[in-house]
C-alpha cells in the first residue's frame, strides 16, 4: 500500500486530521454543538465553488468561507439573534445554496465536484501535505495551550463568564478551529462527512472515558485509528475514503457503547 505515493500522502494528511478533528470536536460535542461542523462544512462547499469559479485554490477559498461561516454561527448564537439550531440552519442552507449557484455559474456541476463533497485521496499533493501539516500543528498547539480554558467553559460556561473568563473570545477561537479542521479535511473526507470525524470518535470516547482528559485522549486515538483503518480498507476494497473512514468511526461508537455498558454493569 505504501509503495504508492498517493497513499503515503493520504496517510500523512490523515494523521493530522485524525488528531485535529476529534480534538476540536471534543469541545463542540460537550457544548452540544455537534452539528456546527456540518454547518461549516456546507459553507466550505460554497468556498470550494468560489475557488472553482475564480480559478484559485478551492482549499484556500474553502478555508476563508469556513472561517467566515464559523464566526457567523457563533456571532448569531452569542448575540441571541437566533437560537443555536436556527443560526446553524441559516448558515447551513445559505452555504449549500450559494455553493450550488456558484458551481453552476462555473459550469462545474460534474463528477469533479464529488472529490470535495466526499473526499478523494488521489488529489492530495506534497504541497497539500505541507500546508495541512503546518496549519494542523498550529491548530493543535492552540488546543494544547487553551485546553484548560476550553474545559472550564465546557464544565460551566455561565460560571466562567461571571468569573471573568473571556468566554466569547474562546468560543470564536473554537469556531475558527472547527473551520480550519473542515478546510484541511476537504480532500480526505469531504465537506459532507467531515463533521462525522469531529463527532463520532468523541461520542465513542465519552462512553468509555473516566475523566475529561482521558476522554479527550481516547477521542484522538479513536479518530486516528478510524482514519488509518478507513484509508487501509478503502485502498484494498476500492471504496471511497471519506465514507469508509466515517463507517469505521461509527463502528467504533457501537463497540464503545457495548464496552461502556459492560463497564457500568461490572461497577
Amino acid at each position: 500500500m505504501f509503495e504508492s505515493e498517493f497513499m503515503r500522502l493520504a496517510f500523512a494528511v490523515g494523521a493530522v486530521i485524525g488528531v485535529l478533528a476529534p480534538a476540536v470536536g471534543f469541545f463542540l460535542v460537550q457544548r452540544r454543538l455537534s452539528l456546527i461542523g456540518d454547518g461549516i462544512g456546507h459553507v466550505a462547499f460554497a468556498g470550494v465553488a468560489l475557488g472553482i469559479l475564480l480559478d484559485v485554490s478551492p482549499i484556500l477559498t474553502a478555508l476563508v468561507a469556513a472561517v467566515a461561516g464559523g464566526v457567523a454561527i457563533e456571532w448569531l448564537r452569542s448575540r441571541r439573534l437566533a437560537a443555536g439550531d436556527q443560526a446553524l440552519a441559516l448558515v447551513f442552507y445559505t452555504g449549500i445554496a450559494a455553493g450550488v449557484v456558484l458551481v453552476s455559474l462555473a459550469g462545474s456541476l460534474d463528477v469533479n465536484l464529488f472529490q470535495y463533497l466526499f473526499g478523494s485521496i488521489l488529489t492530495v499533493t506534497r504541497q497539500d501535505v505541507v500546508v495541512v501539516a503546518l496549519l494542523g500543528l498550529a491548530g493543535l498547539l492552540c488546543i494544547a495551550v487553551l485546553y484548560r480554558a476550553f474545559s472550564a467553559v465546557v464544565i460551566d460556561e455561565e460560571g466562567a463568564r461571571v468569573s471573568g473568563v473571556p468566554v466569547g473570545f474562546l468560543n470564536v477561537v473554537l469556531a475558527v478551529l472547527a473551520a480550519l479542521t473542515v478546510a484541511l479535511s476537504l480532500q480526505i473526507v469531504g465537506v459532507l462527512l467531515i463533521a462525522a470525524l469531529m463527532v463520532l470518535p468523541v461520542t465513542a470516547a465519552t462512553r468509555i472515558g473516566w475523566s475529561l482528559a482521558s476522554t479527550m485522549l481516547l477521542s484522538i486515538g479513536l479518530g486516528l485509528g478510524s482514519v488509518f483503518l478507513g484509508l487501509t480498507i478503502s485502498y484494498y476494497a476500492d471504496l471511497p475514503p471519506g465514507g469508509t473512514i466515517v463507517l469505521v468511526a461509527a463502528g467504533g461508537v457501537a463497540v464503545a457503547a457495548v464496552g461502556g455498558a459492560l463497564q457500568s454493569s461490572t461497577r
Binding site: 460537550q30 465546557v154 460556561e157 482528559a213 482521558s214
Partner: peptide
C-alpha cells in the same frame, strides 16, 4: 445548566 455528558472528575 451543568448537565455534562462527558465523564469529568472532581479534581478537573
Amino acid at each position: 445548566s451543568l448537565a455534562l455528558d462527558a465523564p469529568v472528575t472532581v479534581r478537573e
